[in-house]
Design a protein around this nucleic acid. Structure first.
Length: 625
RNA sequence: GGUCAUGUAGCUCAGCCUGGUUAGAGCGAAGGUUUUGUAAACCUUAGGCCGUGGGUCCAAAUCCCAUCAUGACCUCCA
C-alpha cells in the first residue's frame, strides 16, 4: 500500500462522475471542504489484505501525534501505484481503515471510491507536512481473508425512524402513547426493536430441546452457526421444505435453482452489497473473489434479466429454496437454531408491472404467508407479532392501503416509519416469533422493491411497446426452515410452563405411532400392524428392545411420540387396541382403522415422507446429545 | 467483535476456591439374569491425555498465560 500524507490548512473536493463500474453509490455530489486536516492519499495494492490495516492505522496515528492534528481524510488515489488491487478489495480495505481510524481520530472522512474528483488543497509549509510511506502486508503464511463491510452496515446507525403501533381501528398511535398489555409479546418485541432492555437471562430452551430430541446440534469442526442435523431433524426439514414448496407452487411460484456463490466484482451484485447490511463468506479462487450468497435474490434476478418478458406474463413469480443462504453473522449473535450462518430459506420473488399490481400481489402473498405459517403449526394471532415498516412518502400516498393491509391481522401491529428510503424497499412487513427471553426472530416477510429491477437490468415490454423495469416483491412465506423449528421448539417449551405436554405437530414428528410388544413373542403380530400403518403413510416403528414395558413407554414419551400402542396377549389377533395419546394425556380403546382415519384427518393436507431411521429401535444407533 | 461465565467418561454432572495416593456418581453401552402390561427390573464389566497448547512447581483436573468451542449480556437483524 502506498500512502501520501499531507498536513493541510484545508482541502475542498467534489465528485464529478463515476470512473469505474464498482464505484460507490453516494447521496450528494456537492463539494466538501475540510479545514486543518491530514489528507491521506491512498493506493491499495495487489498484495494488500486486512492484515495491513493495523499497521496503516498505527502509521496514521503516529503521524497525527507528531504534527498534532486530529482530523483525517482518507482519499483514494490510484495514481500512486501501478500494481493496484481489485476495486472490491480496495474499497473493503479503505472502509476497514476508516472504521478503525474512527477510534483514533476526532473526525474521519473518506472521499468516495471510484469517482473522478476535483480538489483544491493548501499544504502547510513545515518539514513534516508531506510524508510518503509504503506499507506491506505481513506476508507470513496465509493471507487473512477480507471482510467486506457494506456501507449499509455502517450507516444503519444513522437510519432515522419513528415508531408507532397500528391498532385494528385503523389508527397509528405513537409508540410512547400506546398502553401495552403487561408482559405481552408485542411489548417485548417493541422493547427488542427499540433495544431498551432484555427481559430474562436464560439458556434458550430450544437449544436443549434440539439436542435432547436429536434434531440438530452444533458442529465444532465447522464454522459457528453451521449445524449438523440428525435423522429426525433432517426429516423435519425435508417435510417443512416439501410443504412450503407445495404451497408456493399452488400460489403460482416457478421453482428454479441458482448457484450458491457469485463473483464479488460483478457490477450489479457489487452495488447490491452496499445496500445489504450483512457480512459475507468470501472465497478466493484463482483470480476470482467469490462470496457465498446470503439470499436467493441475485440468482433469480440474474436469471430474470435473461428472460424475454411481456406485461401479459406479469406478475412472474420465481421461487427457490436455498440450501443454503450464508450470512457471516457476528459470532456473539449466533444462537442455536434462531440465528445461524448457514440456513435454508424459501425465497419467492414476484416481478410486477407497476405499483398497482405490486400492491395487489403484496396482499395475495400476505394471505399465502398466513396460510403457510398456520399450516406449520404456528398461529399468526397467538404465536406471532407483526411489524410493518415503510417510508413516510409511501405512507402518505398509500394511507388507505396500509390501513386495510394492517387491519387483516386482528391485533395491534408495530410500525416503523422511515423518513427516507434507505434500503431498496419502500414497504416491508414481517412476522416475529418472540421467545420467553424476549428475543424476537423474524419468520415470514415480504417487501416491495423499487430498485433492483433497474439495478439488474430486468426488463419487460409493456402494452405501449416500451421496455420497463418491474417492481419486485421479496417474500419468504415461512421464513428460514431452521427458524420454523426454533419457533416450534420454543412454543413447545412454553406449553410445558402452562402444564401441557410439549409436542411437535404430528406431521413433523419422526415417529407418529410407536408399537411396544410386551414380549418378543408378540413381535410377529406387531410387524403386521406396522406394515398396515406404514402402507397407509403413517410413520410407525417398533420398540423391540429387551426392556420393560414401563421403560419403553417412558422413552417413547420423552421422544414426544404422539401415539403409543402396547401389544400383548390381550391384543394378539384382536381388532381393538389401547392407545395412549400424548397431547390429550389419555388412553382409550380404538380399532386400527379408526385410529388411521383419525390421524389422516389431522395430517392429510400435509406431505408424507417415510421413517428416516430403521423401523426396529434395536437397529438404531443411539444419538446421545 | 467486546465483557463475563462454562468446558472433567457417549450424556448429565461432582471434585478445582485451599495443588499431593489409583479422578468419582447417575444415566447410557457391552455381557449375563429376568419374558415382562402403560413414565426408569437386577448383576457384572468396559469406558477419562480433566477442551487444546504453553508456563509455574518436587508435584497441576486444581494456580497463571494463550487459544478454540459453547452460553449470557452488549450491539444488531434482509
Amino acid at each position: 500500500m502506498r500512502i501520501l500524507l499531507l498536513h493541510s490548512d484545508f482541502i475542498e473536493y467534489q465528485p464529478i462522475s463515476k470512473e469505474v463500474e464498482a464505484a460507490e453509490d453516494i447521496q450528494y455530489k456537492a463539494s466538501k471542504k475540510i479545514d486543518e486536516v491530514i489528507v491521506a492519499l491512498i493506493a491499495v495494492e495487489k498484495d494488500d489484505d486486512e492484515s495491513i490495516i493495523d499497521d496503516v492505522c498505527k502509521e496514521l496515528k503516529a503521524y497525527s501525534e507528531k504534527i498534532k492534528c486530529e482530523n483525517l481524510l482518507l482519499y483514494p488515489y490510484a495514481h500512486l501505484s501501478s500494481q493496484l488491487a481489485t476495486h472490491g478489495t480496495a474499497l473493503a480495505v479503505l472502509i476497514s481503515i476508516e472504521n478503525q481510524a474512527r477510534d483514533l481520530f476526532t473526525t474521519v472522512n473518506r472521499a468516495p471510491f471510484g469517482w473522478t474528483k476535483s480538489f483544491h488543497i493548501k499544504i502547510k509549509g513545515h518539514p513534516l507536512a508531506e510524508h510518503a510511506k509504503t506499507i506491506h502486508s505481513k506476508g507470513n503464511g496465509e493471507k487473512k481473508e477480507l471482510t467486506l463491510i457494506s456501507s449499509a452496515l455502517k450507516s444503519e446507525d444513522a437510519l432515522n425512524s419513528t415508531w408507532y403501533v397500528h391498532v385494528p381501528e385503523d389508527k397509528l398511535i405513537p409508540i410512547n402513547d400506546y398502553a401495552f398489555q403487561k408482559d405481552s409479546a408485542l411489548k417485548k418485541l417493541a422493547e427488542y426493536e427499540l433495544s431498551k432492555k432484555r427481559t430474562v437471562v436464560e439458556v434458550p430452551p430450544h437449544v436443549k430441546l434440539m439436542k435432547r430430541l436429536a434434531i440438530a446440534d452444533y458442529e465444532p469442526s465447522s464454522d459457528g452457526g453451521n449445524l449438523r442435523y440428525y435423522p429426525k431433524g433432517r426429516l423435519m426439514k425435508s417435510l417443512i421444505e416439501t410443504y412450503v414448496t407445495k404451497m408456493i407452487h399452488e400460489y403460482g411460484g416457478i421453482e428454479v435453482e441458482t448457484p450458491v456463490m457469485y463473483d464479488s466484482n460483478h457490477p450489479s451484485i457489487h452495488s447490491y452489497f452496499n445496500r445489504f447490511p450483512a457480512r459475507q463468506y468470501n472465497i478466493q479462487s484463482d483470480n476470482k473473489q467469490l462470496f457465498l450468497r446470503f439470499a436467493a435474490c441475485f440468482g433469480q434476478f440474474l436469471m430474470a434479466k435473461d428472460f424475454q418478458i411481456s406485461y401479459k406474463q406479469l406478475p412472474l413469480k420465481l421461487y427457490e429454496l436455498t440450501r443454503y443462504s450464508f450470512r457471516r453473522e457476528k459470532s456473539g449473535e449466533l444462537v442455536g437454531l434462531r440465528r445461524l450462518r448457514a440456513f435454508s430459506m424459501p425465497d419467492c420473488h414476484a416481478f410486477c408491472r407497476d405499483i398497482v399490481q405490486a400492491k395487489e400481489e403484496f396482499v395475495k402473498r400476505f394471505e399465502l404467508s398466513l396460510k403457510v405459517v398456520e399450516g406449520l403449526g404456528i398461529s399468526p394471532n397467538d404465536d406471532l407479532e407483526m411489524v410493518i415498516r415503510f417510508t413516510t412518502d409511501f405512507y402518505e400516498q398509500n394511507k388507505e392501503f396500509i390501513q386495510a393491509f394492517a387491519a387483516r391481522l386482528k391485533k395491534p401491529i408495530l410500525v416503523e416509519m422511515w423518513k427516507e428510503k434507505f434500503f431498496y424497499f419502500i414497504v416491508k412487513w414481517e412476522f416475529n416469533f418472540v421467545d420467553r427471553s424476549g428475543k424476537a426472530a423474524a419468520l415470514s416477510t415480504d417487501q416491495i422493491d423499487i430498485e433492483n429491477g433497474q439495478r439488474y437490468n430486468i426488463e419487460f415490454v409493456d402494452s405501449d411497446g416500451e421496455k420497463k423495469y418491474p417492481i419486485i416483491l421479496h417474500n419468504s412465506p415461512s421464513g428460514a426452515v431452521e427458524r420454523v423449528i426454533f419457533a416450534l421448539l420454543e412454543k413447545a417449551d412454553m406449553e410445558v410452563h402452562t402444564g401441557k405436554p410439549p409436542a411437535l405437530p404430528l406431521w413433523l414428528s419422526h415417529t407418529q405411532i410407536r408399537i411396544i410388544p410386551v414380549s418378543s413373542n408378540h413381535l410377529a403380530f406387531c410387524e403386521k400392524i406396522l406394515e398396515l400403518l406404514n402402507k397407509n403413510s403413517i410413520r410407525t416403528d417398533i420398540d423391540d428392545r429387551e426392556l420393560s414395558v414401563a421403560k419403553k413407554i417412558r422413552e417413547a414419551e420423552s421422544e414426544w411420540v404422539h401415539f403409543i400402542i402396547v401389544i400383548g396377549d390381550k391384543e394378539a389377533g384382536g381388532k381393538e387396541f389401547v392407545v395412549r395419546e400424548r397431547v390429550t394425556k389419555s388412553q382409550y380403546n380404538i380399532s386400527i382403522e379408526n385410529l388411521m382415519r383419525r390421524i389422516k384427518q389431522e395430517i392429510s393436507d400435509k406431505p408424507y415422507l417415510p421413517l428416516n431411521l430403521p423401523k426396529y429401535l434395536s437397529k438404531r444407533p443411539i444419538i446421545m446429545v
